[in-house]
Design a protein around this nucleic acid. Structure first.
Lengths: 131, 131
DNA sequence: GCTTATATTGACGTTTACGTAAACTGCGCT
DNA sequence: AGCGCAGTTTACGTAAACGTCAATATAAGC
């Protein structure tokens, strides 16, 4: 495991542009250290990036992703804040379960469409055989 | 089951604005009939809207959603087109499985965070008991 | 028939999430 | 020393997906 990654290494690994990584930095989502002016990303930053991209794939906005990723830090020290965090987690969980449900529905819909296609193909095949 | 829905009925049911519905119409995603100038949405249109919103929740863009929803129409009559459609379905399925995988990962991450919170709470509770 | 609520079209504005171009800077190599 | 390549900042541009008026029309309730 490397100690640091350059910006282009990350762009290649995750298929994002440098612009994107710098944008995430401006937004406070990433904070690579600097060697001079150059950015160097630690494995921890690389992991954060992975989390960000995972959030993107799930259709979360950057501010939502920020909230989610922020949850992964050290838990707060105060009881009230802890309960608040647990609440937020519950909310996110509801969203995620909804999304999962939507996925299952879409998958089964697509399966239905494919079945239709295949039976249509079979029918065309028979028609062709009959000629 | 009603025969037609007005625009505001749909906005209330699905918590979207009229602007959104008209925008979807401009984009060719919905095509309500008209009673004079007024829009009336059939149950079929309502179902299309449901599909659109489901796609949105999954983070698909409108053009992606358009592609997906278009799949639900009558399957094409030509063999080549049928295979093409089957191909597209396979692609979408890959995406959906990826999303589902991402969801599982996020859910288990969140569970981990919550466990951390709860043990921290327990610890604080003990500390309090000891005072 | 008059008001009130609901609709419509048109047009410009806004936010998010980057793209893209310009103008440097600094390292590695020959 | 010169070249190329990777990296940097600054700043304006853009596509998607609506928001937000304004002006007007129609429908519904009393």
């Amino acid at each position: 495991m490397k100690e640091f990654y350059t910006i282009t290494e990350l762009t290649r690994e995750f298929d994002v542009t440098t612009r994107t990584l710098r944008f995430y930095e401006d937004e406070g989502m990433l904070s690579p250290i600097r060697k001079g002016r150059q950015r160097l990303y630690s494995p921890a930053q690389r992991t954060r990036l992975k989390l960000i991209l995972r959030g993107k794939r799930l259709g979360f906005s950057l501010s939502e992703i920020r909230e989610i990723v922020d949850m992964y830090r050290e838990p707060p020290g105060e009881t009230g804040q802890l309960w608040l965090l647990i609440d937020k987690i519950a909310e996110r969980r509801v969203e995620l379960l909804q999304k999962r449900h939507d996925i299952e529905a879409t998958l089964s819909d697509l399966e239905g469409v494919e079945m239709g296609c295949r039976s249509r193909l079979a029918q065309l095949g028979v028609d062709a055989d009959e000629l």
